[in-house]
Design a protein around this nucleic acid. Structure first.
Length: 826
RNA sequence: GGGCGAGUGGCGAAAUGGUAGACGCGCUAGUCUUAGGAACUAGUAGGUAACCCCUGUGAGAGUUCGAGUCUCUCCUCGCCCACCA
């Protein structure tokens, strides 16, 4: 018996237990059905779910549920990105163990996910902080090491003093730490890197294969990889012709306009380039540059500064002698660490030359104009002048010719330059996967194959400036696996982005103790059919994941190029116009919504107000509205319970009374619209509108029907049971309850979703718009499929239309079948 | 500075080049109630007393029988990258 009152809390608890007990959402690895891998970006277990999580996981859950009901074997797993700094900070504050803090958060959040009614296969739950997972993270590191893609080097790295650790390039935002906004310093440290730059070209090229990614995200990756085609040109030092300074340029066509050269202050051999009398002065400049923060140095507002080294270089193209400078706007990491100054054709160089009174030589002119004094740099295409044998070439041809000349005369050549730099992965923190490396005085760097290398527990978390791991004597002191002599362990841990860049592979084979995963299984399940997560991962996580998959393919462990076929980047959840955050105090706790309205209401609201890609403004009234709607559906079913026959007889549309035919048609229209909206475009908001329209329509029907004959009952039953089926992916608990109470057996979530019948979804009569000169003047109800002549005649017969045509000349008539007639008059 | 999006009622938003504002929130009036913040009914872009009609999708032009939608110029907002040579 259906209860009179909709009681979400009672229903939801009951069905969640039922689903759990009966393993409704367990995914068999083998099945005759086609596979579908639906994946949400797994959360960091910070303590409790926020609305962003609710949105992310509900979206993916609806997609997974719909696919399941469309006959797919759906993999829909969940896990925990559980290494990271917050656990360590919490440990320092409360003297707890990061592991305990993390595990209890995971347990709480897992319960919350269950409360939300998400259809996960919990048997595949993984946590990156557990040894049975990070063992394979370490294994992966060693594979990279053996392939020459993990290496250690001394480098000027980004240092966050607040987090007391180094940061990857990708983790520095506007010169500040991505996590705590502390201004990042440069420090010279010996650190581990992954050679992601080896894959720069394929990471760029394969973006074209990602048809299911938005252009926006692909472009962000493309810009980050930052490929530029250019030329290197070598300039010899006048004072010591054995020294060559190569520069990188994308404008070799302007080489005859070089009037100076600038090297970075950190240029490795800068000391050999300085004239004796300038040494003191230059050293001061270099020291000053070092202590400037990244943010000061890279500010575009500031004037460029530089000083002459007192020496000169020879331009190989024209033999001209030009002064050599150093300037802190030149980056030692990019290109060759040296640039040529062409003030006439580069705005930055122009400003620099004006400031320091350097000469300006024009070498490109606009077509058809003479040479004239430049008021600003001329950066557009043109014709080469003052360029010796290259004069009169258009500058694009000039680029080729100049580069060829450089190649032929040993003065440089073609060069492809990427902005992408190697991935700095070592962190001086505790709560991460230890880097499985041993340093031996005899054997040097030795990989430790005895995995997992477990995190020590006897550590001092409060140590400053070095990894807390280094305080564990038992961990640090070990023996060399090669020579058995005493040796020391690496005490840095890995960037947690390593752990989170391969997790989607582990879900497929989560309990494998012998291998990172079974390749056959992974090849069968990958790629991920639909990945859903926040736009904030557009670069870091997604780029790293793509890199790992390309590496694993090269190692023969997988046979696909890209991990994620389709990517949906969901918008943020806002309140009062800005992102929900604790610091702003504008958060809404999902638990409160579950408690007051139930998970079904939360799910419905989070999907109803905006399309998923767009930001969603939180609205208490909107939540209330969704709750009322669910109550409205409940009442509809409850009040009609006497007239609902679960096994209603088949309906013959040709024989139905017109009222019943109308409802049958609306039922098929709803089927069509809802599945199309969810399946193709993830337009949950318009799918939900359709639910409401359909419910309004059934209410109309019920309101008009005083007594029910068998045909009425069958049509009504069809409408209501279809409604419940269509709503079940979004509103899983309430629909399960109604399904069961109306007489359905098993779970509604395991049935097949019905397909609409197109012939039943079209109306017999359609409103046809009649326009005069594109303005609507009348609307006529005409049969579906009327011929163009019939439409035109009907339009011209209309009294309203005739009054508009009267006394005018009909120039032409446009007819769009089933839609409109436009009469053009003069 | 470069790149990418987006501008539609009081609000969230709909709209294969073809009836702009579906659906909802809010609001107004009414019904039922002791009462309702519940439910139901009707209305709700602006102008007009009002039907008709006129105006209307950031501004301006263009293409088209017809433009929220396509093209160009401009304005505003958001996001990403940014001394990248």
């Amino acid at each position: 018996m259906i209860k009179e009152q909709y009681n979400p809390q009672e229903i939801e608890r009951k069905w969640q237990k039922f689903w759990d007990d009966n393993n409704i959402y367990k995914t068999p690895s083998e099945s005759d059905k086609p596979k579908y891998y639906a994946l949400s970006m797994f959360p960091y277990p910070s303590g409790r779910l926020h609305m962003g999580h609710v949105r992310n996981y509900t979206i993916t859950d609806v997609i997974a549920r719909l696919r399941r009901m469309k006959g797919y074997n759906v993999l829909h797993p969940m896990g925990w990105d559980s290494f990271g700094l917050p656990a360590e900070n919490a440990a320092i504050q409360s003297n707890a163990n990061p592991a305990d803090w993390t595990i209890s958060n995971i347990d709480y959040m897992r319960d919350q996910l269950k409360t939300l009614g998400l259809s996960y296969d919990w048997d595949r739950d993984i946590a990156t902080c557990k040894p049975d997972y990070y063992k394979w993270t370490q294994w992966l590191f060693l594979e990279l090491y053996k392939a020459g893609l993990a290496y250690k080097k001394e480098a000027a790295v980004n240092w966050c003093s607040d987090c007391a650790t180094v940061l990857a390039n990708e983790q520095v935002e506007e010169g500040q730490c991505w996590r705590c906004s502390t201004i990042v310093e440069k420090k010279n440290l010996s650190q581990w890197f992954l050679k992601i730059t080896d894959y720069a070209e394929s990471l760029l090229q394969d973006l074209d294969k990602l048809k299911g990614w938005s252009e926006n995200v692909k472009l962000m990756q493309k810009n980050w990889i930052g490929k530029s085609q250019g030329t290197t040109i070598k300039f010899k030092l006048v004072e010591n012709p054995d020294i060559e300074i190569p520069v990188f340029t994308t404008r070799p066509d302007t080489v005859f306009g070089v009037t100076y050269l600038v090297v970075a202050p950190e240029y490795p051999i800068i000391n050999q380039l300085v004239a004796e009398e300038n040494k003191d002065y230059v050293q001061k400049y270099i020291d000053a540059a070092k202590i400037k923060s990244e943010i000061e140095r890279t500010s575009t507002e500031k004037d460029k500064t530089g000083i002459p080294l007192g020496t000169h270089v020879i331009n190989p193209f024209n033999g001209k002698k030009v002064p050599l400078w150093t300037g802190d706007y030149v980056l030692v990491e990019y290109g060759t660490g040296a640039v040529m100054g062409v003030p006439a054709h580069d705005t930055r160089d122009f400003a620099f030359a004006k400031k320091y009174n350097l000469s300006i030589v024009q070498v490109i002119k606009k077509q058809q104009t003479g040479e004239e004094e430049l008021a600003e740099a001329y950066v557009d295409p043109g014709v080469m002048i003052n360029s010796g044998e290259f004069n009169d070439l258009d500058n694009e041809t000039g680029k080729q010719k100049i580069t060829e000349w450089a190649e032929q005369n040993n003065a440089g050549g073609r060069k492809v330059q990427f902005r992408l730099r190697d991935w700095l992965i070592s962190r001086q923190r505790y709560w991460g996967a230890p880097i499985p490396i041993i340093y031996c005085d005899n054997c040097g760097i030795v990989p430790d194959e005895n995995l997992p290398v477990l995190l020590p527990e006897d550590v001092d978390f409060k140590v400053q400036g070095r990894s807390p791991v280094s305080t564990s004597e038992t961990f640090v002191n070990t023996t060399c696996p090669k020579c058995n002599k005493p040796a020391k362990r690496e005490t840095d841990t890995m960037d947690t982005f390593i752990c989170s860049s391969w997790y989607y592979l582990r879900y497929i084979d989560p309990k494998n103790e012998d291998k990172i995963f079974d390749s056959d299984l992974v090849n069968k399940w990958m790629s991920v059919d639909q990945y859903v997560g926040g736009i904030e991962h557009a670069i870091l996580h997604l780029l790293y994941s793509r890199f790992f998959v390309k590496f694993l393919k090269d190692r023969g462990l997988v046979n696909f190029d890209e991990p994620f076929d389709n990517l949906l980047t969901q918008g943020m959840v806002l309140k009062d116009g800005s992102k929900m955050s604790k610091s702003k105090g504008n958060t809404v706790d999902p638990d409160d919504i579950f408690k007051n309205y139930g998970a079904d209401t939360a799910r419905l609201f989070i999907l109803s107000d905006s399309p998923p890609q767009r930001d969603l403004e939180w609205s208490d009234e909107g939540v209330e509205g969704c709750y009322k709607f669910l109550n409205r559906v409940w009442r509809l079913v409850y009040n009609s319970r006497e007239n609902i026959i679960f096994d209603y007889p088949e309906l013959d549309a040709n024989k139905l009374a017109s009222k019943n035919n109308d409802l049958l048609r609306e039922t098929h229209k709803a089927m069509k619209k809802v599945t199309a909206d969810i399946n193709n475009e993830f337009q949950f908001n318009t799918a939900i509108s359709k639910y409401r329209e359909f419910v309004n329509c059934i209410y109309d029907y019920v309101g008009k029907t005083k007594t029910y004959n068998d045909e009425d009952k069958a049509v009504l039953s069809n409408a209501i049971i279809t409604l419940i089926k269509l709503m079940s992916p979004l509103v899983p608990h309430m629909t399960e309850e109604l399904w069961s109470e109306l007489g359905g057996s098993g779970s509604i979530h395991l049935i097949e979703l019905p397909e609409h019948d197109e012939s039943l979804a079209v109306s017999q009569n359609l409103p046809i718009v009649v326009q005069i000169n594109g303005k609507v003047r009348d609307k006529l109800m005409l049969p579906f499929g009327s011929s163009n002549d019939d439409l035109e005649n009907a339009a011209k017969d209309s009294e309203k239309i005739q009054s508009h045509i009267l006394g005018k000349q009909v120039v032409k008539t446009i007819v769009v079948p089933n839609r409109l007639v436009n009469i053009v008059v003069k």
